[in-house]
């Protein structure tokens, strides 16, 4: 303290001008104000925006979702006790981000199959809806990019993830989604959707939340790192050229057989019939034979 006083005294003794005191005072005030402006309002803003987000989300929810899911997301039952729209109290933000972010919600008609279609809400609106539904109860949050994005891996890591992800994919996903993610048939006319060309975030969220009839693959079931491996594997499927020729949808023997029968054999038959029905004739007689 004495040292400080002494140096301050020395400074003041040599440098003090007539308005130095005023300048120091102003500087102090500006710094305090500036620091306050940097830190304090930022905190105030984030709570405000979170509350506003939930509020905006609730407004959007009441207009677009409440008809089937209830005004407080409690779900709506039909007269015979089946679900019209399930309760959303414990689905979490990840479920909303997936369902609305892939265009599955809002549905065109109620039913157990929600097809992927054009997204009707903007990113900001989806964030608001997610925030509102997350505020209703528990449930998984929207994952961070480093959890699902295979681009965050180094190239050696990436190869290891692809191999591991392929094994996990073959054990857990191919039964319904087909060996190259082309989707497949389910009981009573349902189907498991094609999962090629889907945003990694949405694949991760689908595993996490089990949309529609799909089973859940929670973090206790398939750990986050293994989920990322599955996504890395699906990623390589996208990039891989089709070495065997046209994939015909990658659906297996049904589409391949159909093309072989109708296009292949049909084409050959048509060619044979065309060839057999075209022979030119002439009225001229053979030289020397017409005498």
């Amino acid at each position: 303290m004495r040292l400080l006083n002494r140096s301050a005294g020395r400074l003041s003794r040599h440098r003090r001008g007539p308005i130095a005191g005023l300048v120091v005072l102003l500087l102090g005030l500006l710094m305090t104000g500036g620091l306050y402006a940097v830190f304090a309002p930022a905190q105030a803003d984030s709570t405000d925006s979170q509350e506003e987000l939930v509020k905006d989300g609730r407004e959007l929810f009441l207009v677009g979702c409440a008809f089937c899911h209830g005004q407080n997301g409690e779900g709506v039952l039909t007269q015979d006790g089946t679900q019209y729209g399930p309760a959303l109290t414990d689905v979490g933000a990840a479920a909303v981000d997936f369902q609305v972010g892939t265009g599955r919600m809002p549905m065109a008609t109620p039913g157990s199959q929600a097809p992927r279609k054009e997204v009707v809400y903007t990113d900001a609106e989806i964030a608001a809806l997610s925030a509102y539904v997350a505020s209703l109860g528990t449930g998984p949050a929207i994952p961070d990019a480093e959890l699902y994005d295979p681009d965050t891996l180094s190239s050696e890591e990436y190869d290891e993830y692809v191999v591991r992800g392929g094994q996990i994919f073959l054990a857990n996903c191919t039964a319904c989604h087909n060996f190259e993610g082309s989707g497949g048939a389910m009981p009573r006319g349902g189907y498991a959707p094609k999962i090629r060309g889907v945003d990694p975030k949405h694949i991760y969220e689908a595993m996490l939340t089990g949309p529609q009839s799909m089973d859940t693959f929670s973090d206790g079931n398939i750990p986050p790192d293994d989920k990322k491996a599955v996504i890395a594997y699906l990623n390589t499927l996208e990039e891989q050229p089709s070495y065997g020729g046209f994939t015909l949808g990658g659906l297996g023997p049904v589409s391949e057989g159909m093309i072989a029968w109708f296009v292949g054999m049909g084409g050959m038959l048509a060619f044979a019939i065309w060839g057999a029905s075209h022979t030119t004739r002439t009225s001229r007689k053979k030289d020397g034979a017409d005498a």
Binding site: N172, T216, F217, S218, G220, N221, P223
Partner: peptide, 16 residues
């Protein structure tokens, strides 16, 4: 494929 044993508490309702 993963090979790790499963705790009963790992699984959530709806898990396969």
């Amino acid at each position: 494929a993963i090979g790790t044993p499963i705790l009963a508490s790992d699984l959530e309702i709806g898990d396969l």
